[in-house]
Design a protein around this nucleic acid. Structure first.
Lengths: 339, 339
DNA sequence: GCTTAGCACTCGATTGATTAGAGTGCTAAC
DNA sequence: GTTAGCACTCTAATCAATCGAGTGCTAAGC
């Protein structure tokens, strides 16, 4: 049985209603809605069909119907009309983002707050992947006997630092010359490129080979620890505003996921390109089967390196969340690229 | 009416019981306890007195009694016997802390997790105050036309960075020499000392006065923004395990406080010296009037610069929390000082 | 043949009454 | 001063009755 025009209409009306009320929707409610010119009895027949097709669930016999994951999937893929942000709102978000200074972590933290405020759902932002950032400068700074701090400055100004051991007999001039060489050779290349030039750099380091080896090894390690890119959460208590989380047990589970940066990273990194990606209910695995996760990516230069998204109940306001995410994705890309 | 021996005994028994059960305590329960050789009727008389004195509350006529803030205050100040950590436990915590690498933020994050795990309450850790850290190195790194990144390396390896504008006509050699001068003059001084040497440094900068001025101004600004030292929260969902937070509304309020870093900083920074400080119920202000906050400080070198603490229900297990905090405070001080 | 009015039926939520139990406060006896 | 005894209070649990929202089915209407 294929879905005809009317079934689409009714399903859409049910979803719209349920998204705003969170209460099972009955046939009378839909019948009364403008745009649907059928009696409750007719609606009931259609609803019965829709249930059989897996688009609706019935909590119990005498309750209304509730949209299933499958219904939301259909909704976001075909039914939904994506809303637009008012220019007012765009401006408000834009202004706030601009005011957050230039430091990358401040931008990310600010974006998480804006996102949670604008959507009223919990927001998550994953910082840029290290490997895609371009090197501006590498500097070895002596900090103690035989120890130096290696500082990597990238196009985002992000400073990655690590302690390295300096072999005996090297003074700060040696450190300086190695720094110079690294910077000259690697400037404007993405951090990942360090790997490719590894042996070449080592060869040309001449009498500072041990230090160069140590330095490269530490960079390599930083790159490998890339899976530990920062994850920032905003509005973690927002979910508790929704009746589906009135149960403390559910709230606890949800908060536990927010505490696990690894799980969050995995949830956020499923989208491919720049377009908004939506995962509904069970698609998010057993931990989050009553949530939806909507994600987008942002660029730095021409590389998509980070992700931003929101987590909310499956009945979330998709057609509002999507334009907000799109706008924020662009805003962040701009803010992080022009520098 | 002063508290006699027996009243102390009974109050202590009530508090002990309430801490473990979270249920109002009746006279029979106390009477049955070993160590108290009185009938329920006698206990009732005493309880009635204790209520009149403000140490006990009665949720309703036919319920047992519940300790008041005043009772907990008396308890932690005079009644409580502070527990000891088993050497097993010390070792476990110690090992975990050691394994967290040397990066300060990793240490802090790790400590927050350990603290929450060991106590089963929500933990909060405030990063070291900038001003108290000693300067190891200051470096200006060119990143673009007329822009440089100023990097401050301290004894904790913490890198504070900020973009500064470079006046026309200065090349990287000029930046290098300023860096050298700043490092020589300021090395081993606390960051705050920059203020005192301000004019002196400016005078001696000779033909690079504008750059020096700009640099010092930026450092000044970083110091003033000191109130924004990082705050890390661990185990934010732990509180939901306690029956007093079964009410979603309360949970929401609590989580809202955890999201406000400013409020958390204020809560954590009330302790003076190194000893453990306890604030009970209403002492924490209206937002947190049903929580207790227990804090300690940690040192870097001989300066107390950061705070750590836990937040839990007023009926928290004080005599376990205190030794854990004491131990963690020492462990962190050691870990951050020996480097 | 699709639509819809009508109606019996289901089931959760609400209400009210009753009961059980925990605990108190008071009095009088020890 | 201590305690046994007892009446009293108040909550929580239980149960029945009722309400109402909503369904499914049938038969009549267009």
């Amino acid at each position: 049985m294929p879905l005809d025009e009317r079934k689409f209409l009714i399903l859409q009306a049910i979803i719209d209603d349920y998204i705003t009320t969170a209460m099972p929707v009955g046939s009378r409610t839909i019948s009364r809605k403008s745009g649907v010119g059928f009696s409750p009895a007719t609606i009931r027949n259609e609803m019965s069909d829709l249930e059989e097709l897996g688009y609706l669930d019935q909590p119990h016999t005498s309750a209304g119907r509730v949209p299933s994951d499958k219904a939301y999937r259909l909704y976001v893929d075909h039914l939904m009309k994506v809303g637009k942000l008012s220019s007012d709102e765009r401006e408000r978000i834009h202004d706030y983002m601009q005011s957050r200074g230039a430091q990358v972590d401040a931008v990310i933290r600010g974006a998480a707050t804006v996102l949670a405020d604008a959507t009223q759902y919990t927001s998550v932002i994953v910082a840029p992947k290290l490997g895609t950032l371009r090197i501006r400068h590498i500097q070895l700074v002596p900090v103690a006997e035989e120890t130096a701090l290696m500082i990597i400055v990238t196009n985002l100004g992000i400073v990655k630092d690590a302690l390295i051991r300096v072999p005996d007999g090297l003074d700060s001039d040696d450190l300086y010359s190695i720094s110079r060489m690294l910077t000259e050779r690697l400037a404007d290349k993405p951090l990942e490129a360090v790997r490719q030039t590894f042996s070449e750099l080592l060869r040309d380091a001449e009498n500072n080979r041990r230090l160069m080896g140590e330095t490269l090894r530490v960079i390599e390690k930083k790159l490998e620890a890339e899976d530990s890119t920062e994850v920032v959460v905003g509005g973690s208590s927002k979910l508790l505003n929704y009746p589906e989380y009135a149960d403390v047990e559910k709230a606890k589970n949800f908060l536990a996921v927010l505490e696990s940066k690894d799980k969050l990273r995995a949830l956020m990194n499923r989208g491919g390109g720049m377009e908004v990606t939506i995962h509904i209910g069970a698609e998010n695995g057993p931990d989050m089967s009553d949530c939806s996760v909507v994600t987008a990516r942002y660029r730095v230069g021409d590389q998509t390196t980070g992700a931003l998204g929101i987590i909310g109940p499956t009945r979330m306001n998709y057609n509002r969340v999507i334009p907000v995410l799109e706008f924020m994705s662009r805003a962040m890309s701009e803010l992080l690229t022009n520098r």
